[in-house]
């Protein structure tokens, strides 16, 4: 933020909350339908069409046997859910996703905070380090997975041969365990930089007088961190956790391009399972039922997380 923008924000924050009685834009234009349409019409139409309508439709599809092509769609009640209960692949993929999300969320947030904490200190090469740690985040999609496929299957064995370090001689991507940790590693490597930036912003927003006060009161480094910094950082933590939960549950492209579910579907995440059911096996109805369960899980987990962490937020 530039100095001018900061000044503006300071000036404005006092006034915006107490609008004068005589004027508000709401009074002027609030009821004008044409203005409302002009401002909101197009984006709202798009939003309703591509997000809300499909969302509502998925409730309907989930109770049918629709195959995606035929116009003959029959209502099958809870058959899809009964089928799901016996679908071992689905439960395995759900369990895999939960484990993957747990590890990836924990590692990205802890390491992201650690990097931000270090790079918030007045280091000489701070700018370069920040930029450098962010760079992997510009990769995405298939490119990310394909690069690491090369590294795991070609480069790691070569390093292992040259140095004899056991870590590199593991059968990377060849066993369920190495596939799992390979995915976690690449995901963390890629997303770390973004969370580092978010935590850095949170840390730099903590007023230095709070930290000084803690120091004068005799708090050590660890005490300051746990008793002052972290509580004041709760809004950032809430946001970072929300973002990392929603993004790690959605892992699909990385999963597909790195392990493609292998070996033997052991590293198949839930989105990949849904994709396979719906678009490879053409069971759109059944796929919708699975998506619905998936969506409920994500909404429930993020809901619980936001409720828990935002309750811990303190005001300065």
């Amino acid at each position: 933020m530039t100095a001018a923008a900061k000044k503006r924000a300071v000036i404005s924050s006092g006034r915006a909350e107490r609008p004068r009685e005589s004027f508000s834009p709401k009074k002027h234009w609030g009821k004008n339908l044409l203005v409302e349409l002009g401002f909101l019409g197009i984006i709202l139409l798009c939003f309703l069409t591509v997000k809300i309508l499909p969302f509502l439709l998925s409730f309907g599809y989930a109770f049918t046997d629709w195959n995606g092509i035929s116009s003959q769609i029959s209502f099958t009640g809870v058959d899809n859910y009964v089928q799901m209960l016996a679908d071992k692949d689905f439960w395995n993929s759900l369990w895999f996703t939960l484990r993957f999300c747990g590890c990836s969320i924990l590692l990205t947030n802890v390491l992201g905070f650690f990097l931000a904490f270090c790079l918030n200190k007045p280091l000489r090469m701070r700018g370069i380090l920040r930029a450098g740690f962010y760079i992997p985040n510009v990769l995405g999609g298939l490119v990310l997975g394909f690069i690491w496929q090369f590294i795991f299957t070609k480069v790691f064995p070569a390093i292992g041969k040259a140095t004899g370090i056991g870590f590199f001689n593991l059968m990377w991507l060849g066993t369920p365990a190495t596939s799992f940790w390979g995915l976690v590693m690449v995901d963390v490597w890629c997303s770390l930089g973004y969370y580092m930036l978010l935590y850095l912003a949170g840390l730099s927003a903590i007023p230095s007088d709070c930290l000084e006060a803690a120091h004068i009161d005799g708090a050590g480094g660890w005490q300051t961190l746990t008793k002052v910094t972290l509580p004041l950082l709760m809004p950032t933590i809430t946001r970072c956790l929300f973002l990392s939960i929603t993004s790690s549950f959605r892992v699909y492209t990385l999963n597909m391009s790195l392990t493609n579910g292998g070996p033997y579907l052991s590293s198949e995440a839930i989105t990949m399972n849904i994709y396979r059911t719906a678009f490879t096996e053409n069971q759109m109805g059944y796929g919708s039922a699975k998506s619905l369960v998936f969506m409920l899980i994500v909404v429930a987990i993020t809901g619980i997380q936001v409720a828990l962490t935002s309750r811990k937020e303190v005001s300065m």
């Binding site: 997000k51 969302f55 994709y275």
Partner: peptide, 26 residues
């Protein structure tokens, strides 16, 4: 507008992968 805003916020928790099947149809 308040309802619209809440709807927009709530929809952030809906992953794309969960609506992709009906989205194709729509």
């Amino acid at each position: 507008n308040k309802i619209v805003y809440l709807l927009l916020l709530a929809s952030m928790a809906i992953p794309f992968e969960a609506v992709m099947i009906p989205l194709m149809k729509v």
